[in-house]
């Protein structure tokens, strides 16, 4: 299949950037979206043009490195799919495809389609962990956890931290991400010990990074490749209120 690509090109963080048009020729429908870009890049290198820069790593849909806003939707319009797992058979021959970087003040563009998502790392460093003192490993069944709680924690922990929620949110809010991280711990006894400190620290860090506020559009939920539900945001709101009314 042949496609027309409108790709965001930006030399560096200071460059204004613009959409450039490229042709992708003889693309197999079995290719992933990133493989299609690899083919285009081969062609560009052959022509002496700087290849299109984009983030990628595992290409198995589990690492959260790939990004891209494809035709206005982070990771493309295919539900519950990362860009690396998006196949070209979902596009039509001759189609024009817009490819833009994740847009947020907190995710500045480094080059072309590559954005700096280290704001997420700093939120995790602020409270996205359980403090562990070294010592003997307890028996697996020493702390009973109800199945429902374990399920909710696992659902939240499915978040791969790709940032599609921020890219989709019309306010560039990071609350689905932070909600998932706060929830995955808040449902488990190990995480409950530090729940108040965690909610405060992670929300403070999120605010300081310049993300927008949640106004309950639920765009994040619609694009999340791991189908994280907005109930994690409701959970975070409860956790935060609890933290705000508790003396630490």
């Amino acid at each position: 299949m042949n496609l027309i690509l409108k790709v965001w090109r930006q030399k560096d963080a200071r460059d204004k950037g613009r959409l450039e048009t490229y042709e992708a020729r003889n693309i197999s429908e079995h290719m992933s979206f990133l493989e299609m870009l690899d083919v285009v890049n081969e062609q560009l290198v052959g022509e002496g043009v700087d290849p299109i820069h984009f983030d990628h790593d595992c290409r198995e849909g589990i690492c959260g490195t790939c990004s891209l806003v494809i035709n206005g939707s982070p990771h493309g319009h295919q539900k519950a799919t990362t860009t690396c797992q998006l196949h070209m058979r979902h596009f039509k021959d001759g189609e024009t495809i817009y490819i833009e970087p994740f847009r947020a003040k907190a995710f500045p563009v480094i080059k072309d389609l590559v954005v700096d998502r280290s704001a997420f790392d700093r939120i995790m460093q602020a409270g996205g962990f359980v403090s562990v003192n070294t010592g003997g490993v307890p028996d697996a069944n020493a702390i009973p956890i109800p199945k429902e709680d374990a399920d909710k924690a696992m659902d939240a922990a499915a978040c791969i931290g790709c940032g599609a929620c921020v890219a989709a949110c019309k306010n560039a809010s990071a609350m689905l991400f932070v909600g998932a991280k706060v929830s995955q711990f808040a449902h488990l006894p190990q995480g409950k010990v530090e729940r108040e400190k965690r909610a405060r620290a992670m929300v403070s860090q999120m605010d300081s990074e310049g993300f927008g506020n949640c106004t309950n559009y639920y765009e994040c939920e619609a694009v999340c490749p791991k189908e994280i539900k907005v109930e994690v945001i409701a959970k975070m709101n409860r956790e935060y209120f609890r933290a705000a009314t508790t003396k630490i």
């Binding site: 409108k6 939707s73 003040k105 809010s173 927008g212 765009e219």
Partner: peptide, 23 residues
């Protein structure tokens, strides 16, 4: 604050499920 959080707009913006009322 929300406007400031996305200084550069998408060229091709779409809406997934946000209602017009919410926007």
């Amino acid at each position: 604050e929300n406007w400031a959080a996305r200084p550069v707009a998408y060229k091709n913006e779409t809406t997934q499920q946000a209602s017009l009322a919410s926007r």
